[in-house]
Amino acid sequence: MNAFASVDIYCERTDPGYWSEPINALTNLSFILAAIWAFQVYRTLRAQTNQQGHDVLILIATVMAGIIGIGSYLFHTHAQVWSSLADVIPIWSFVAFYLFLAIYRIVGTSLVRAFLIYGVSLAMIAGLIALVSNLTLATDGASAGRDGFNGSLQYLPGILALFGFALVMAIRKHPARGWIFAAAVTFTLSIFFRTIDMAVCSSFPLGTHFLWHLLNGLFIGLLLQALVRQGQPRKSAISV
């Protein structure tokens, strides 16, 4: 594999140049803004409740959200194999870390039970991703990006997991249920715009991938708000 091979899978890109995707690149600021929003609320709420020190787990999740924007920016400017990894790795790292925090902190289970549920959840998500990938390849032998969904089927397990989590929160009447449901709806809409990007090229040369970035930034922001507001230790979780 040539790590410096060019990658051209988005409507906006017309050549291998650094600024061939200016809108796709700059809209990654949405992830940085999501992280800033989360940190500002985190700092305000801790000051209001006179909490000392910092919640390291929440801060790590916030920083990871910002890194998603940096990685995606690198991909939409350099557009090479190595930068595609810089794009994908932070995203899935955040998902894996947030999933654990959602179980441990937002739901409020014990640490041992959180790890058990987390392990089962990861296995189920990985299995669904593998199933979707196999079905896609079996259907037309296409690689991601030429499967009729522009590679977006890989996110289907995430959508199912999010709506499942939102349902559990609603049944429990958990204070974070509104944030999680809003995040699930936003993520679904963002995947729609990611999927149709190449399909609209002829009529809309800019494409719609930038809307995936903007909505995903909002999606990450909503998840972080649920974590910051309801993911602190149970005795200090703040109702909204």
Rank of each mutant, 00 (worst) to 15 (best):
T208W: 14
F39W: 13
L33T: 06
E12M: 10
A144Y: 12
L137W: 11
E12F: 06
L223V: 05
N24Q: 02
I196W: 08
M198C: 15
V120E: 09
P22G: 13
L85P: 00
V107N: 01
P233K: 13
V112Q: 03
D55S: 09
A130N: 10
S121Y: 07
L45W: 02
L227T: 05
I106T: 05
A25R: 03
T188K: 00
Y104M: 12
S84C: 00
R13V: 08
D55A: 08
F165K: 00
L99S: 11
F149E: 01
V200I: 15
P22K: 12
F4C: 13
F210H: 04
A138G: 14
F97L: 07
G151T: 13
L167P: 02
N134T: 08
A102H: 04
T208C: 11
T195P: 02
R13G: 07
F187H: 12
S6G: 05
V200P: 10
Q48N: 14
R13M: 13
L101D: 03
L222T: 06
A237Q: 15
C11A: 14
N134S: 07
L59V: 12
S93M: 04
L74E: 03
R43Q: 13
F193H: 06
I32L: 13
G127I: 15
A142L: 08
F149G: 00
W92I: 11
F4M: 14
A65F: 01
